[in-house]
């Protein structure tokens, strides 16, 4: 059952990622990226990361993609001329070489032949969200604050850049 759902979600993720690259219209690319985000959230559910699945749907599919589609429709650029750049054949060749190399590496390496045991089996496990909250607000409190600062700077920077001519006094 788990293998079946992995094959479904993985196949859908790869297919929609390929569609993002292949489609000529950027709006269609954004729509297939939406499908990819939804299937990645499904993969997170299989991997028992339910909180991240929710965050993935809310932040990626809900906020980031809406911003993209808004800008695509605002600019309303008609695709004309070439879709690909001049160096595309070289990149495709290098990508095939890299794919063969990575496939060889993965087939020859052993990832944890024996999985590590679950730590403290006697303790009743917390839920996924509770665990993340416990660790995020104790061990990773300082990076969490830095992340809020990064978001604030991005907010100010985006407004300043998109506003155009600013008059400094």
């Amino acid at each position: 059952m788990e293998i079946l759902s992995f094959v479904y979600f993985g196949g859908a993720i790869l297919l929609s990622a390929l569609m993002v690259v292949i489609f000529k219209n950027p709006l269609y690319s954004a729509m297939s990226l939406l499908s990819m985000f939804a299937h990645v959230a499904g993969l997170y559910v299989i991997l028992e990361a339910e909180f991240l699945a929710g965050v993935q749907l809310l932040v990626y599919a809900g906020a980031i993609l809406v911003l993209y589609i808004f800008v695509v429709m605002l600019l309303n650029v008609q695709t004309q001329g070439r879709v690909l750049q001049k160096q595309a054949p070289v990149v495709f060749g290098a990508a095939v070489v890299a794919a063969v190399e990575v496939a060889f590496l993965i087939s020859r390496s052993h990832f944890y032949p024996e999985l590590p045991p679950v730590p403290q089996p006697g303790v009743p496990p917390l839920g996924n969200t509770e665990m993340i909250g416990m660790v995020l607000y104790t061990k990773y409190l300082f990076p969490f604050e830095i992340a809020s600062l990064v978001l604030l700077i991005a907010l100010v920077g985006a407004i300043v850049m998109a506003k155009g001519k600013l008059k400094f006094r």
Binding site: Q56, V59, V71, M161
Partner: peptide, 17 residues
């Protein structure tokens, strides 16, 4: 995910200008 959100906001601002 946080960094991705920041990157999208900045990147789209650059593209618009």
């Amino acid at each position: 995910i946080t960094v991705a959100a920041a990157e999208v906001a900045i990147g789209l601002g650059i593209i618009i200008s």
